[in-house]
């Protein structure tokens, strides 16, 4: 795994994102993008469906990302990327074709087209940055919005569980599936690098937990802390699944033991989206955590 110093040096060299884009203060998607593109050494073609990423580029001070970018319609990124990947194959190019999509574009409107690309095992690295709602359009709920979260279309808190896309991709037997967390950049970096090199030629899926200060109603200074708590409460297990064989990643490994997890309340209390949450829902959310781990353990 890269050291923090190496990571910083690589990022300074690659300069995946220039200063002056329109991302909100504390935005973790922006950092994730920087880490991911650094891991790819900038050798990527990025396809972005409608999402936060498509509106933060360039604004104000000009072009902000040093890779070719295609901003597509909502349900279109995986097919557009498929077309690009097939042409690159004909041309004998090794450049990584990345779909960089939000959770709404992945879990909801784009799910069919992503599943199609996975089934065809297209040479695409699909990154779903998960800010758990349609944050760009004003925080409407998405399929990935967790139970309990208030959004502008679930004003009393969402009642149902989130759609677990990473596990659904495992069910589709995608050769490399991983979860990442913007608060753990080295882990994220390593996963992108591994997906791009070791599994090149196949469909790969990485889901990045990406806190959103305005949408989640958290203080901008807390967005890294929220990510850490998501990990330390067991709320967001980090893992890699290679051909269906799962291994928990180092930051999350010890939380396989429920006794070691921090109380979920620590995670909930610093986020406005969970304010005044029904204790019954909190209980269900606690059960959701162990439920998630218990399913994941079966794939170890």
């Amino acid at each position: 795994m890269v050291s923090t110093k190496e990571l910083v040096n690589i990022e300074l060299e690659v300069k995946a994102i220039e200063k002056g884009n329109l991302a909100c203060p504390g935005c973790q998607l922006n950092l994730s993008f920087k880490h991911a593109l650094s891991a790819l050494k900038g050798d990527a073609i990025v396809v972005v469906p409608a999402c936060c990423t498509s509106v933060i580029q360039g604004a104000g001070q000009g072009y902000g990302m040093h890779v070719p970018i295609f901003n597509t319609a909502f349900a279109s990124a995986p097919p557009v990327a498929s077309g690009i990947a097939r042409k690159l194959k004909r041309d004998g190019k090794k450049t990584t074709v990345v779909v960089w999509a939000g959770d709404g574009g992945t879990a909801d409107i784009g799910f069919g087209s992503m599943s199609g690309a996975a089934e065809r095992d297209e040479n695409i690295l699909y990154v779903m940055y998960d800010n758990q709602g349609y944050q760009n359009t004003g925080n409407q709920k998405s399929g990935a919005t967790p139970r309990g979260a208030k959004t502008s279309t679930t004003p009393h808190g969402k009642k149902s569980r989130r759609k677990d896309i990473a596990r659904m991709m495992m069910a589709q037997e995608v050769s490399y599936v991983a979860t990442a967390n913007a608060s753990y950049p080295q882990d994220l970096f390593a996963k992108i690098e591994r997906a791009a090199t070791e599994f090149a030629g196949h469909f790969r899926f990485i889901q990045i937990y990406s806190p959103c200060p305005p949408g989640w109603n958290i203080d901008t200074k807390d967005s890294v802390l929220v990510g850490e708590l998501a990990n330390n409460t067991g709320y967001w297990p980090l893992y890699e699944a290679v051909n269906g064989k799962l291994e928990f990643s180092r930051p999350s490994r010890r939380f396989n033991d429920p006794a070691k997890r921090k109380p979920l309340a620590d995670y909930l209390k610093i986020q406005g989206r969970f304010r005044n949450i029904d204790p019954e829902i909190v209980k269900q959310m606690e059960e959701d955590i162990e439920h998630e781990w218990s399913i994941l353990r079966k794939f170890m």
Binding site: G104, A107, D108, T137, Q140, S152, T153, T154, P155
Partner: peptide, 27 residues
């Protein structure tokens, strides 16, 4: 959700609930 029509859905999400109707945010 879609800009600039989302406020209609946002309002319906709680108003229909109050009026005994059904609101679904579709995929």
């Amino acid at each position: 959700p879609i800009t600039p029509a989302s406020p209609i859905a946002e309002r319906m999400s709680y108003r229909l609930f109050e009026e005994g109707g059904e609101f679904i945010q579709m995929e």
